[in-house]
Design a protein around this nucleic acid. Structure first.
Lengths: 190, 190
DNA sequence: GCCTTTCTTGAGCGATCACTCAAGTATATA
DNA sequence: TATATACTTGAGTGATCGCTCAAGAAAGGC
């Protein structure tokens, strides 16, 4: 049999995710990708098919990694504590490609053009919201949150607050950690 | 003396604002603008200088109009009531070019490229935040909000929540009015 | 009427966009 | 070692990007 590709596909997708996350869809050119991935156009298209196809892979990795990190946090510290710590974690990482959520950036950029990637981003956001709802449910079962609240409603509001926080964190001169703390404190009052 | 331009400059800026607001900076081409403004390239560049210059004018109009509408609401119903009604108003208008805030869309799209328009958007957001803080202050003077709160802190959180709401409203299948109501209810508990 | 001043027109500029493909190169099997 | 089977290369595709500019058209003042 023949030659093997001399790259680590997973590593390439991660690097593409970081570039797309930071610069957005139209802000990332094939030239940018070729530079970061160290690939010529021919190899790129043989490996991924199109810029859009790679973007979708990048979003999937973004969601899978984030989801796993939240789940791990919940396993370690419990569901409520995970939900309370998550906003600060989302915003504190100095090395992350951007503070704002990649899914919301994609949605805002491409929704007006009815681009399929905007629809995909929305679906991924729905999945994240469902994970939040699960954690709220678990926190209720553990007696940490009053059972009078609807977990879906809590999750919807929580995600909205999180998206706002992460837009704010993208700004210069905004104390995002302070907002993150307020969101966490709000959960204590449920 | 000579010929007058046969267009209403203010009207052109409004149409450009709607287009930019909906499609974003890189999502709006000169061709799009020429079509909507009914201008050939020569006239366009004679009138506005560049795409970026028109975008800045569009943002200024966006902020001026929004700011005036909020101020009018406050004059009519009082500062606290204005702050409580504002989220629902921002999200209910079916004819608006987009649900998300034009400033946050611009910031997210252009911040990574250090584009001057991202910096401008941030400054406009700061001005809006200051207006919110003023209204919170006035509500405290009127005795509608406990004086133990810092108006700047309230405004920062309020704006973050508003940005999150408006990103959520851009999504399909999200009940943004419900989130708006929760934000308003939160203000009642201050 | 004419002249001056401005606005309008639209072909077309160089640069960049996402993407293609034929030719060359490396590797596993026979 | 020979062959088959990928992977890699990079010049080049047509389309579109923001923008320019010379020529023509319109509306004052005289």
């Amino acid at each position: 049999m023949p030659r093997k590709p001399n790259f680590d596909r997973n590593d390439l997708i991660e690097r593409a995710r970081d570039l797309f996350w930071q610069r957005g869809w139209s802000g990332t050119s094939l030239k940018d990708l070729e530079a970061v991935l160290q690939m010529k156009p021919g190899s790129f298209y043989a490996a991924f098919g199109s810029k859009d196809a790679l973007f979708e892979l990048a979003m999937q990795k973004y969601v899978a990694d984030g989801s796993a990190r939240l789940q791990e946090l919940a396993s370690k510290d419990g569901p409520l504590e995970a939900l309370k710590r998550w906003p600060a974690l989302a915003v504190e990482n100095e090395t992350s490609p951007a503070k704002a959520c990649m899914l919301s950036k994609t949605l805002l950029e491409l929704h007006a053009h009815n681009h399929p990637l905007a629809e995909q981003a929305n679906l991924h956001l729905l999945k994240m919201e469902e994970q939040f709802a699960d954690l709220f449910r678990q926190a209720q079962m553990a007696g940490d949150i009053d059972k009078s609240h609807d977990p879906q409603v809590l999750a919807r509001r929580y995600q909205s607050d999180l998206l706002g926080l992460r837009v704010s964190a993208e700004r210069d001169g905004i104390n995002a950690q302070a907002i993150a703390k307020e969101i966490a404190d709000g959960l204590s009052r449920l």
